[in-house]
Design a protein around this nucleic acid. Sequence first.
DNA 1: CATGAATGAGCATTCATTCAT
DNA 2: TATGAATGAATGCTCATTCAT
Lengths: 211, 211, 211, 211
Amino acid sequence: MATADRRAQERVRRREAILQAARAVFAEYGFRRATIDEVAARAEVGKGTVYLYLSGKEDILAELLLRALDELGRRLQAANDSHPVVHPDQRLRALADAYLSFAQNAPDYFRLLTAFDRGDFVQGIKPAQRELLLTASDRALELATQAIADGMALGIFAPGDARQAAGVLWAALNGALTLMAHPLRRTLIATDAAGLCRVALEVCLRGLAKS
Amino acid sequence: MATADRRAQERVRRREAILQAARAVFAEYGFRRATIDEVAARAEVGKGTVYLYLSGKEDILAELLLRALDELGRRLQAANDSHPVVHPDQRLRALADAYLSFAQNAPDYFRLLTAFDRGDFVQGIKPAQRELLLTASDRALELATQAIADGMALGIFAPGDARQAAGVLWAALNGALTLMAHPLRRTLIATDAAGLCRVALEVCLRGLAKS
Amino acid sequence: MATADRRAQERVRRREAILQAARAVFAEYGFRRATIDEVAARAEVGKGTVYLYLSGKEDILAELLLRALDELGRRLQAANDSHPVVHPDQRLRALADAYLSFAQNAPDYFRLLTAFDRGDFVQGIKPAQRELLLTASDRALELATQAIADGMALGIFAPGDARQAAGVLWAALNGALTLMAHPLRRTLIATDAAGLCRVALEVCLRGLAKS
Amino acid sequence: MATADRRAQERVRRREAILQAARAVFAEYGFRRATIDEVAARAEVGKGTVYLYLSGKEDILAELLLRALDELGRRLQAANDSHPVVHPDQRLRALADAYLSFAQNAPDYFRLLTAFDRGDFVQGIKPAQRELLLTASDRALELATQAIADGMALGIFAPGDARQAAGVLWAALNGALTLMAHPLRRTLIATDAAGLCRVALEVCLRGLAKS
DNA sequence: CATGAATGAGCATTCATTCAT
DNA sequence: TATGAATGAATGCTCATTCAT
């Protein structure tokens, strides 16, 4: 029935509106300071409606985390797929670019993911959802690991533990983004987040390269 | 007078007890979730007593941050001073070791500092104290910058922007520590925080080295 | 829509209930001793509900003061308007009666106003609202001043400073009401507040009259 | 024993210091906002010492009220005694002057007495002490009553209820002092407390005089 | 006697969640 | 289905009073 369809669509739209409102509010105030009132107001629905579509603050958080991971995963996968196996270093650069652009174009999601990664929500998320999130999170690492392993196989990178190397890369980018989130730090280091990320990437790639 | 001395000592001890309790509580729950009640309970004093020794939640935080920075600064300075100028790479390794050992032996302080660095306490700290903390924080970066500049001057490292290179190093270590704070990640990457830090350091040093 | 109307009415009623509860509690305990818990309990609403309708203790106070002044102003104006210019003494008696009946029929409001007048709420009210209240308060004095000035012009009262004379009248009534608020004082002076007020008024009128 | 005497004197002095400190603090902050800490600090004694000499905040209040009444009573009695029976109006003026000078030279005591009179301390004072205070308070009224009765007997004042007339006088002075305590009111009425008191007194005396 | 450290009850305010309409 | 009014538990901070030294 067309009507039922319309209903369903409307439901989806509404849920989306609430989630996007929450995303903005969480980013602006942080999870704890964010209020459902504010979320409802921004989504232009009644407060009670929020609870019709999502079962509470924590549930909203979990849902947003999943979407954030989805978004990031999609971007990374796309970057990965658009580069041939024979140029693992190019593929790594593309993955890093994708990560960087995710952090810059979807900063709300990025902040959410790093906060989750730090364990800020330990008390606010059900174990089952934690599991789900963590495995999703680690699929990202797998892509980098594969690229590095490919590079080792091709003799481009020095042999070693590909997964650890991928960890280093990820860590360096994460660290650079976090560090440069601070205005004063940008002044001090005299570049921006993208700049430091690129330097970090190149330093790491040189460090991994077969001498 | 022995009595006055004992009194003074007792006061200091009590203040310390409260601060260490707060350190644990803040680390466990985060600043906002932490309650003065819990701090008082862990310090085994009445709630009012907390306010006899420290003027409020924010004051406790500021004091802990100062101590954390002091502790870290002392460790880094010691590491720096115990290595000669002629081996900048050794000096960097020593600095990294000091940073790592700080993160592992004083994890509460480390979490506090990274939280501050992220700007989590923007609303909870007086601007004057922010200044103080930030300059203290950046003194750390200066040590690494100097070592790298020395290495460039000595021809050990390839020429480049020493401060950015120091930023990359710091970012990589921070990122590695954050990443590996999570048990599941340790399983996945099959090493611990120290391990990934060492790999990260070596990758970066190789990446900086004159080819 | 009838429903919306009912809602709005219900909101007004509830707000009124809270304010009247607060009026009683403030009068009974004084502003500082009064607790929101008690106000909520007497209004038979939850504590949080109080904050839905009024933004805090100070807001409640300001609102009550405004109502008190409104009420008093209305009564005085009515008394003033119902007496012709040619009988200023009758007008003064009517004004005094109105003031007295206000003090007796709305004792909570009266206490609130005298407390405000004493400056008891200096720290609890925003300057802007203070201004508003003070000018409103002084409109009362103006009515009496005018009546006395009229009487002087008509030769009923001896010439003099009409405003000061009005001050004396006001002071005498206020003083009498305050004095007689105490049961033991009523026994001692062997009359009640109304009685002493009337005596005070007549003494003052005789004292002002042209000999 | 001289030593015992010295001890006793010292005790008295200390108690006095505490009470005078409390008098200042109560006047400055009001009874509820005043803290024992502040009293102890101003008296330059330890907080515990306050409780050695007085059994608590309420006790201090009661003691101060007694002293205030003593002081006022002494002044009024002196004014009364220095004027012959044959000039009751002069005696009333002297009593009023004494009252006014009390209000202006011992404003702390005056504020305390008026607050008590208003019943501000109903919950904070034991009934027994209330009794004591009230009877002391009413001795003041007796002096004025007597003067007026004398004046009636002498044919200076019109016959009437002397006690009520005394009440009116007292009320007028109290009212004037309270009214003029407010700076804005002084501007509006264009005189000061002493000025309005004098006007009030003269109006009342004229109003009481035999025509 | 004198002290001041310690205590904990008390209070204004916020906000996630529920539920009657 | 959507709403938003109502709730009360939770929390930082104050201060009168007690008591060990």
